[in-house]
Nucleic acid binder design. Structure first.
Lengths: 214, 214
DNA sequence: CCTACCGATCGGTAGG
DNA sequence: CCTACCGATCGGTAGG
Protein backbone atom coordinates (compact mmCIF):
# COMPACT_ATOMS: atom_id res chain seq x y z
CA UNK A 1 0.00 0.00 0.00
CA UNK A 2 2.35 2.69 -1.15
CA UNK A 3 -0.37 5.36 -1.25
CA UNK A 4 -1.06 5.18 2.47
CA UNK A 5 2.62 5.23 3.29
CA UNK A 6 2.99 8.34 1.17
CA UNK A 7 0.17 10.21 2.87
CA UNK A 8 1.53 9.28 6.28
CA UNK A 9 4.93 10.54 5.24
CA UNK A 10 3.37 13.80 4.07
CA UNK A 11 1.49 14.20 7.35
CA UNK A 12 4.61 13.57 9.38
CA UNK A 13 6.55 16.02 7.26
CA UNK A 14 3.88 18.67 7.87
CA UNK A 15 3.94 17.98 11.62
CA UNK A 16 7.72 18.33 11.60
CA UNK A 17 7.50 21.64 9.78
CA UNK A 18 4.88 23.11 12.13
CA UNK A 19 7.26 22.48 15.01
CA UNK A 20 10.28 23.61 13.01
CA UNK A 21 8.73 26.99 12.09
CA UNK A 22 7.97 27.58 15.75
CA UNK A 23 11.51 26.68 16.81
CA UNK A 24 13.04 28.78 14.02
CA UNK A 25 10.99 31.87 14.96
CA UNK A 26 12.73 31.68 18.35
CA UNK A 27 16.17 30.19 17.66
CA UNK A 28 16.61 31.35 14.08
CA UNK A 29 17.36 29.22 11.03
CA UNK A 30 20.88 28.39 12.24
CA UNK A 31 19.76 27.70 15.79
CA UNK A 32 17.22 25.26 14.39
CA UNK A 33 19.46 22.22 14.77
CA UNK A 34 18.48 18.81 13.53
CA UNK A 35 19.35 17.21 16.85
CA UNK A 36 17.25 19.58 18.94
CA UNK A 37 14.30 19.39 16.57
CA UNK A 38 14.50 15.57 16.57
CA UNK A 39 14.46 15.49 20.38
CA UNK A 40 11.49 17.87 20.48
CA UNK A 41 9.63 15.48 18.14
CA UNK A 42 10.81 12.31 19.95
CA UNK A 43 12.53 11.13 16.80
CA UNK A 44 16.05 10.08 16.04
CA UNK A 45 18.27 12.62 14.34
CA UNK A 46 18.78 10.52 11.25
CA UNK A 47 15.06 9.68 11.06
CA UNK A 48 14.25 13.37 10.86
CA UNK A 49 17.19 14.08 8.62
CA UNK A 50 15.94 11.56 6.04
CA UNK A 51 12.92 13.79 5.37
CA UNK A 52 15.04 16.66 4.10
CA UNK A 53 18.48 15.44 3.05
CA UNK A 54 20.38 18.47 4.29
CA UNK A 55 20.04 21.26 6.76
CA UNK A 56 19.64 23.75 3.93
CA UNK A 57 16.69 21.80 2.51
CA UNK A 58 15.14 21.80 5.98
CA UNK A 59 15.61 25.58 6.19
CA UNK A 60 14.03 26.09 2.76
CA UNK A 61 11.08 23.86 3.70
CA UNK A 62 10.61 25.83 6.92
CA UNK A 63 10.58 29.09 4.96
CA UNK A 64 7.92 27.75 2.57
CA UNK A 65 5.79 26.53 5.48
CA UNK A 66 5.99 29.96 7.14
CA UNK A 67 5.16 31.66 3.82
CA UNK A 68 2.11 29.46 3.36
CA UNK A 69 0.81 30.38 6.82
CA UNK A 70 1.46 34.04 6.01
CA UNK A 71 -0.48 33.81 2.74
CA UNK A 72 -3.41 32.12 4.48
CA UNK A 73 -3.53 34.46 7.49
CA UNK A 74 -2.64 37.82 5.96
CA UNK A 75 -3.26 37.54 2.22
CA UNK A 76 -6.33 35.32 2.63
CA UNK A 77 -4.93 33.09 -0.11
CA UNK A 78 -5.26 36.04 -2.47
CA UNK A 79 -8.99 35.34 -2.49
CA UNK A 80 -11.39 38.15 -1.60
CA UNK A 81 -8.71 40.78 -1.18
CA UNK A 82 -9.81 44.30 -2.01
CA UNK A 83 -7.40 46.53 -3.93
CA UNK A 84 -6.53 50.19 -3.59
CA UNK A 85 -6.88 52.10 -0.38
CA UNK A 86 -9.16 49.53 1.26
CA UNK A 87 -6.68 46.79 0.34
CA UNK A 88 -3.85 48.67 2.01
CA UNK A 89 -5.89 49.11 5.18
CA UNK A 90 -6.99 45.48 5.05
CA UNK A 91 -3.50 44.06 4.60
CA UNK A 92 -2.13 46.19 7.43
CA UNK A 93 -4.80 45.29 9.94
CA UNK A 94 -4.68 41.62 8.90
CA UNK A 95 -0.94 41.65 9.63
CA UNK A 96 -1.44 43.27 13.03
CA UNK A 97 -4.18 40.80 13.98
CA UNK A 98 -1.98 37.96 12.79
CA UNK A 99 0.87 39.10 15.03
CA UNK A 100 -1.38 39.63 18.05
CA UNK A 101 -2.53 36.03 17.68
CA UNK A 102 0.99 34.97 18.61
CA UNK A 103 1.13 32.00 16.24
CA UNK A 104 4.94 32.02 16.40
CA UNK A 105 6.53 32.25 19.84
CA UNK A 106 9.33 34.39 18.40
CA UNK A 107 7.00 36.89 16.76
CA UNK A 108 7.13 37.57 13.02
CA UNK A 109 9.05 34.68 11.50
CA UNK A 110 10.43 36.78 8.67
CA UNK A 111 11.62 39.56 10.98
CA UNK A 112 13.51 37.00 13.02
CA UNK A 113 15.04 35.51 9.90
CA UNK A 114 15.86 38.64 7.87
CA UNK A 115 18.68 39.94 10.02
CA UNK A 116 20.04 36.43 10.30
CA UNK A 117 20.30 35.70 6.58
CA UNK A 118 21.12 39.13 5.18
CA UNK A 119 24.86 38.50 5.44
CA UNK A 120 24.78 34.86 4.27
CA UNK A 121 24.56 34.60 0.49
CA UNK A 122 22.87 31.51 -0.87
CA UNK A 123 19.48 30.03 -1.74
CA UNK A 124 18.11 30.53 1.79
CA UNK A 125 18.83 34.24 1.71
CA UNK A 126 17.54 34.49 -1.87
CA UNK A 127 14.20 32.96 -0.94
CA UNK A 128 13.76 35.20 2.10
CA UNK A 129 14.60 38.25 0.00
CA UNK A 130 12.08 37.18 -2.65
CA UNK A 131 9.24 36.60 -0.18
CA UNK A 132 9.92 39.84 1.69
CA UNK A 133 10.03 41.75 -1.55
CA UNK A 134 6.72 40.30 -2.73
CA UNK A 135 5.06 41.33 0.53
CA UNK A 136 6.35 44.89 0.12
CA UNK A 137 5.16 44.83 -3.48
CA UNK A 138 1.68 43.81 -2.40
CA UNK A 139 1.56 46.94 -0.26
CA UNK A 140 3.05 49.06 -3.04
CA UNK A 141 0.63 47.69 -5.65
CA UNK A 142 -2.35 48.56 -3.46
CA UNK A 143 -1.02 52.09 -3.03
CA UNK A 144 -0.45 52.42 -6.78
CA UNK A 145 -3.98 51.22 -7.47
CA UNK A 146 -5.33 53.74 -4.96
CA UNK A 147 -3.50 56.48 -6.82
CA UNK A 148 -4.73 55.35 -10.22
CA UNK A 149 -8.33 55.21 -9.05
CA UNK A 150 -8.05 58.70 -7.56
CA UNK A 151 -8.35 57.61 -3.91
CA UNK A 152 -4.78 58.77 -3.34
CA UNK A 153 -3.40 62.08 -4.56
CA UNK A 154 -1.59 62.06 -7.92
CA UNK A 155 1.73 63.02 -6.31
CA UNK A 156 1.64 59.98 -3.96
CA UNK A 157 4.74 57.75 -4.18
CA UNK A 158 3.46 54.16 -3.76
CA UNK A 159 6.90 52.83 -2.80
CA UNK A 160 7.17 55.49 -0.11
CA UNK A 161 3.76 54.54 1.29
CA UNK A 162 4.78 50.86 1.32
CA UNK A 163 8.08 51.76 3.02
CA UNK A 164 6.30 53.64 5.78
CA UNK A 165 3.59 51.07 6.44
CA UNK A 166 6.10 48.22 6.46
CA UNK A 167 8.27 50.22 8.88
CA UNK A 168 5.35 50.57 11.30
CA UNK A 169 4.44 46.88 11.15
CA UNK A 170 8.01 45.79 11.78
CA UNK A 171 8.43 48.31 14.59
CA UNK A 172 5.29 46.98 16.30
CA UNK A 173 6.73 43.47 16.15
CA UNK A 174 10.12 44.61 17.42
CA UNK A 175 8.68 46.66 20.26
CA UNK A 176 6.42 43.82 21.34
CA UNK A 177 9.13 41.16 21.21
CA UNK A 178 11.85 43.18 22.89
CA UNK A 179 9.94 45.34 25.35
CA UNK A 180 6.70 43.37 25.70
CA UNK A 181 4.93 46.57 24.73
CA UNK A 182 1.35 45.61 23.87
CA UNK A 183 0.53 49.22 22.99
CA UNK A 184 2.88 48.94 20.01
CA UNK A 185 0.13 47.42 17.87
CA UNK A 186 -2.12 50.39 18.55
CA UNK A 187 0.74 52.82 17.85
CA UNK A 188 1.36 51.09 14.52
CA UNK A 189 -2.33 51.20 13.59
CA UNK A 190 -2.46 54.90 14.42
CA UNK A 191 0.67 55.65 12.40
CA UNK A 192 -0.62 53.67 9.42
CA UNK A 193 -3.90 55.56 9.53
CA UNK A 194 -1.96 58.84 9.42
CA UNK A 195 0.09 57.72 6.45
CA UNK A 196 -2.99 56.54 4.55
CA UNK A 197 -4.93 59.70 5.43
CA UNK A 198 -2.05 61.92 4.32
CA UNK A 199 -2.18 60.30 0.87
CA UNK A 200 -5.97 60.27 0.59
CA UNK A 201 -7.65 62.94 -1.54
CA UNK A 202 -10.19 65.18 0.24
CA UNK A 203 -13.09 63.82 -1.82
CA UNK A 204 -12.23 60.23 -0.92
CA UNK A 205 -11.69 61.13 2.74
CA UNK A 206 -15.14 62.69 2.92
CA UNK A 207 -16.69 59.55 1.42
CA UNK A 208 -15.00 57.00 3.69
CA UNK A 209 -15.20 56.22 7.40
CA UNK A 210 -12.35 57.79 9.36
CA UNK A 211 -11.52 54.80 11.57
CA UNK A 212 -10.84 51.89 9.28
CA UNK A 213 -7.55 50.55 10.67
CA UNK A 214 -8.36 48.60 13.86
CA UNK B 1 56.85 47.28 34.70
CA UNK B 2 53.30 46.44 35.50
CA UNK B 3 51.93 49.75 34.17
CA UNK B 4 53.11 49.11 30.64
CA UNK B 5 51.82 45.56 30.70
CA UNK B 6 48.44 46.84 31.81
CA UNK B 7 48.19 49.40 29.03
CA UNK B 8 49.22 46.82 26.48
CA UNK B 9 46.57 44.50 27.81
CA UNK B 10 44.00 47.27 27.54
CA UNK B 11 45.05 48.07 23.97
CA UNK B 12 44.84 44.42 22.96
CA UNK B 13 41.45 44.11 24.59
CA UNK B 14 40.22 47.11 22.63
CA UNK B 15 41.61 45.69 19.40
CA UNK B 16 39.85 42.41 20.10
CA UNK B 17 36.57 44.21 20.73
CA UNK B 18 36.75 46.27 17.52
CA UNK B 19 37.02 43.04 15.56
CA UNK B 20 34.42 41.31 17.72
CA UNK B 21 31.80 44.01 17.17
CA UNK B 22 32.35 43.73 13.43
CA UNK B 23 32.00 39.94 13.50
CA UNK B 24 28.94 40.10 15.76
CA UNK B 25 27.17 42.58 13.46
CA UNK B 26 27.40 39.91 10.76
CA UNK B 27 27.25 36.58 12.62
CA UNK B 28 25.29 37.68 15.67
CA UNK B 29 26.24 37.30 19.31
CA UNK B 30 25.90 33.50 19.22
CA UNK B 31 27.70 33.17 15.91
CA UNK B 32 30.57 35.15 17.41
CA UNK B 33 32.53 32.06 18.48
CA UNK B 34 35.72 32.28 20.48
CA UNK B 35 37.56 29.98 18.10
CA UNK B 36 36.66 31.96 14.97
CA UNK B 37 37.46 35.28 16.60
CA UNK B 38 40.81 33.93 17.82
CA UNK B 39 41.71 32.75 14.32
CA UNK B 40 40.72 36.13 12.83
CA UNK B 41 43.08 37.79 15.34
CA UNK B 42 45.86 35.20 14.91
CA UNK B 43 45.61 34.25 18.55
CA UNK B 44 45.03 31.01 20.35
CA UNK B 45 41.54 30.33 21.60
CA UNK B 46 42.58 30.18 25.23
CA UNK B 47 44.69 33.32 24.87
CA UNK B 48 41.65 35.26 23.74
CA UNK B 49 39.40 33.52 26.24
CA UNK B 50 41.61 34.69 29.13
CA UNK B 51 40.62 38.30 28.40
CA UNK B 52 36.95 37.68 29.15
CA UNK B 53 36.51 34.54 31.23
CA UNK B 54 33.32 33.37 29.56
CA UNK B 55 31.46 33.77 26.31
CA UNK B 56 28.77 35.78 28.08
CA UNK B 57 31.35 38.27 29.37
CA UNK B 58 32.69 38.59 25.83
CA UNK B 59 29.16 39.25 24.56
CA UNK B 60 28.56 41.91 27.23
CA UNK B 61 31.91 43.56 26.42
CA UNK B 62 31.01 43.60 22.72
CA UNK B 63 27.67 45.25 23.51
CA UNK B 64 29.39 47.97 25.57
CA UNK B 65 31.92 48.59 22.79
CA UNK B 66 29.12 48.97 20.23
CA UNK B 67 27.20 51.26 22.59
CA UNK B 68 30.24 53.46 23.04
CA UNK B 69 30.68 53.83 19.28
CA UNK B 70 26.98 54.63 19.01
CA UNK B 71 27.22 57.32 21.69
CA UNK B 72 30.24 58.87 20.00
CA UNK B 73 28.85 58.77 16.46
CA UNK B 74 25.15 59.48 16.98
CA UNK B 75 24.82 61.13 20.40
CA UNK B 76 28.10 63.09 20.07
CA UNK B 77 28.97 61.99 23.62
CA UNK B 78 25.95 63.97 24.80
CA UNK B 79 28.01 67.12 24.22
CA UNK B 80 26.63 69.83 22.01
CA UNK B 81 23.32 68.13 21.36
CA UNK B 82 20.42 70.47 20.77
CA UNK B 83 17.07 69.62 22.35
CA UNK B 84 13.52 69.86 21.07
CA UNK B 85 12.64 69.75 17.42
CA UNK B 86 16.20 70.47 16.22
CA UNK B 87 17.49 67.69 18.47
CA UNK B 88 15.07 65.22 16.94
CA UNK B 89 16.14 66.17 13.44
CA UNK B 90 19.80 66.08 14.48
CA UNK B 91 19.62 62.62 16.08
CA UNK B 92 17.78 61.19 13.08
CA UNK B 93 20.18 62.50 10.48
CA UNK B 94 23.19 61.56 12.62
CA UNK B 95 21.86 58.00 12.76
CA UNK B 96 21.33 57.89 8.99
CA UNK B 97 24.82 59.26 8.30
CA UNK B 98 26.26 56.78 10.78
CA UNK B 99 24.63 53.88 8.95
CA UNK B 100 25.68 55.11 5.51
CA UNK B 101 29.26 55.14 6.73
CA UNK B 102 29.03 51.36 6.98
CA UNK B 103 31.15 51.07 10.12
CA UNK B 104 29.68 47.62 10.76
CA UNK B 105 29.58 45.16 7.89
CA UNK B 106 26.28 43.77 9.16
CA UNK B 107 24.58 47.17 9.37
CA UNK B 108 23.12 48.43 12.63
CA UNK B 109 24.65 46.29 15.38
CA UNK B 110 21.62 46.58 17.63
CA UNK B 111 19.16 45.67 14.88
CA UNK B 112 21.17 42.53 14.20
CA UNK B 113 21.27 41.67 17.88
CA UNK B 114 17.70 42.55 18.95
CA UNK B 115 15.90 39.74 17.16
CA UNK B 116 18.59 37.34 18.31
CA UNK B 117 18.34 38.04 22.03
CA UNK B 118 14.65 38.84 22.41
CA UNK B 119 13.83 35.20 23.18
CA UNK B 120 16.87 34.52 25.39
CA UNK B 121 16.37 35.82 28.93
CA UNK B 122 19.52 36.80 30.80
CA UNK B 123 21.97 39.64 31.32
CA UNK B 124 22.79 39.92 27.60
CA UNK B 125 19.18 40.47 26.67
CA UNK B 126 18.68 42.81 29.63
CA UNK B 127 21.54 45.05 28.52
CA UNK B 128 20.36 45.20 24.91
CA UNK B 129 16.84 46.05 26.07
CA UNK B 130 18.19 48.80 28.32
CA UNK B 131 20.34 50.40 25.60
CA UNK B 132 17.58 50.20 22.99
CA UNK B 133 15.12 51.72 25.42
CA UNK B 134 17.46 54.62 26.26
CA UNK B 135 17.87 55.40 22.56
CA UNK B 136 14.10 55.47 22.08
CA UNK B 137 13.81 57.66 25.18
CA UNK B 138 16.33 60.13 23.76
CA UNK B 139 14.01 60.53 20.77
CA UNK B 140 10.95 60.73 22.97
CA UNK B 141 12.55 63.30 25.31
CA UNK B 142 13.39 65.54 22.36
CA UNK B 143 9.81 65.33 21.13
CA UNK B 144 8.48 66.11 24.63
CA UNK B 145 10.78 69.10 24.87
CA UNK B 146 9.58 70.30 21.47
CA UNK B 147 6.02 70.11 22.69
CA UNK B 148 6.77 71.95 25.94
CA UNK B 149 8.55 74.74 24.11
CA UNK B 150 5.65 75.11 21.70
CA UNK B 151 7.53 73.88 18.62
CA UNK B 152 5.22 70.86 18.49
CA UNK B 153 1.44 71.05 18.87
CA UNK B 154 0.04 70.51 22.37
CA UNK B 155 -1.74 67.31 21.32
CA UNK B 156 1.49 65.69 20.08
CA UNK B 157 2.25 62.29 21.65
CA UNK B 158 6.06 62.18 22.12
CA UNK B 159 6.13 58.37 22.40
CA UNK B 160 4.21 58.12 19.12
CA UNK B 161 6.70 60.44 17.38
CA UNK B 162 9.61 58.36 18.75
CA UNK B 163 7.89 55.14 17.61
CA UNK B 164 7.49 56.46 14.08
CA UNK B 165 11.00 57.86 13.70
CA UNK B 166 12.57 54.73 15.11
CA UNK B 167 10.47 52.63 12.73
CA UNK B 168 11.81 54.61 9.74
CA UNK B 169 15.44 54.32 10.85
CA UNK B 170 15.15 50.58 11.38
CA UNK B 171 13.34 50.10 8.08
CA UNK B 172 16.12 51.95 6.26
CA UNK B 173 18.67 49.62 7.79
CA UNK B 174 16.60 46.54 7.00
CA UNK B 175 15.95 47.58 3.41
CA UNK B 176 19.61 48.38 2.84
CA UNK B 177 20.91 45.17 4.39
CA UNK B 178 18.41 42.83 2.78
CA UNK B 179 17.75 44.44 -0.59
CA UNK B 180 20.85 46.62 -0.99
CA UNK B 181 18.47 49.51 -1.48
CA UNK B 182 20.51 52.70 -1.14
CA UNK B 183 17.39 54.82 -1.67
CA UNK B 184 16.10 53.56 1.68
CA UNK B 185 18.07 56.22 3.55
CA UNK B 186 16.43 58.97 1.51
CA UNK B 187 13.00 57.38 2.01
CA UNK B 188 13.57 57.32 5.75
CA UNK B 189 14.71 60.95 5.78
CA UNK B 190 11.62 61.97 3.82
CA UNK B 191 9.29 60.04 6.13
CA UNK B 192 10.93 61.51 9.23
CA UNK B 193 10.54 65.01 7.81
CA UNK B 194 6.82 64.33 7.30
CA UNK B 195 6.38 63.07 10.85
CA UNK B 196 8.22 66.08 12.30
CA UNK B 197 6.34 68.51 10.06
CA UNK B 198 2.99 66.99 11.01
CA UNK B 199 3.75 67.68 14.69
CA UNK B 200 5.18 71.16 14.14
CA UNK B 201 2.99 74.19 14.91
CA UNK B 202 2.35 76.60 11.99
CA UNK B 203 4.29 79.41 13.69
CA UNK B 204 7.36 77.23 14.18
CA UNK B 205 7.12 75.87 10.64
CA UNK B 206 7.12 79.40 9.24
CA UNK B 207 10.21 80.26 11.29
CA UNK B 208 12.32 77.20 10.36
CA UNK B 209 13.88 75.97 7.17
CA UNK B 210 11.79 73.28 5.47
CA UNK B 211 14.62 70.91 4.57
CA UNK B 212 16.45 70.11 7.76
CA UNK B 213 16.67 66.33 7.57
CA UNK B 214 19.40 65.49 5.06
C1' DC C 1 49.94 34.50 26.31
C1' DC C 2 50.73 29.13 24.75
C1' DT C 3 49.78 23.68 23.91
C1' DA C 4 47.01 20.11 24.89
C1' DC C 5 43.13 18.49 26.28
C1' DC C 6 37.82 17.74 28.08
C1' DG C 7 32.70 16.46 27.16
C1' DA C 8 28.98 18.02 24.31
C1' DT C 9 26.97 18.95 20.10
C1' DC C 10 27.07 20.02 15.27
C1' DG C 11 25.75 18.25 10.17
C1' DG C 12 26.02 14.22 7.91
C1' DT C 13 26.81 8.97 6.64
C1' DA C 14 26.74 3.69 6.77
C1' DG C 15 24.13 -0.05 7.11
C1' DG C 16 20.12 -2.12 8.15
C1' DC D 1 12.36 4.92 10.48
C1' DC D 2 16.51 3.01 13.74
C1' DT D 3 21.60 2.44 16.00
C1' DA D 4 26.08 3.53 15.61
C1' DC D 5 29.33 6.10 13.99
C1' DC D 6 32.41 10.08 11.43
C1' DG D 7 35.30 14.60 11.59
C1' DA D 8 34.72 19.29 12.96
C1' DT D 9 33.74 22.68 16.15
C1' DC D 10 31.73 24.41 20.30
C1' DG D 11 32.73 26.64 25.30
C1' DG D 12 35.76 25.85 28.71
C1' DT D 13 39.93 23.92 31.68
C1' DA D 14 44.72 22.31 33.18
C1' DG D 15 49.17 23.39 33.47
C1' DG D 16 52.79 26.01 32.26
Amino acid sequence: MPRRTDSQTTLLRQAILVRAVDVASVEGLEGLTIGRLATALSMSKSGLFAHFGSKQELQLAVIEAAAETFRREVMQDGGALPGGRAGLVHLSSAWLRYMEKGLFRGGCFFAAVCSEVDDRPGPVRDRVVELTRSWLEALEDSAAQARESGEFAAETDPAQVAFEIHAFLQEANRSFQLHGDGAAFRRAARAIRQTVDAATTPATAAATLPDHVR
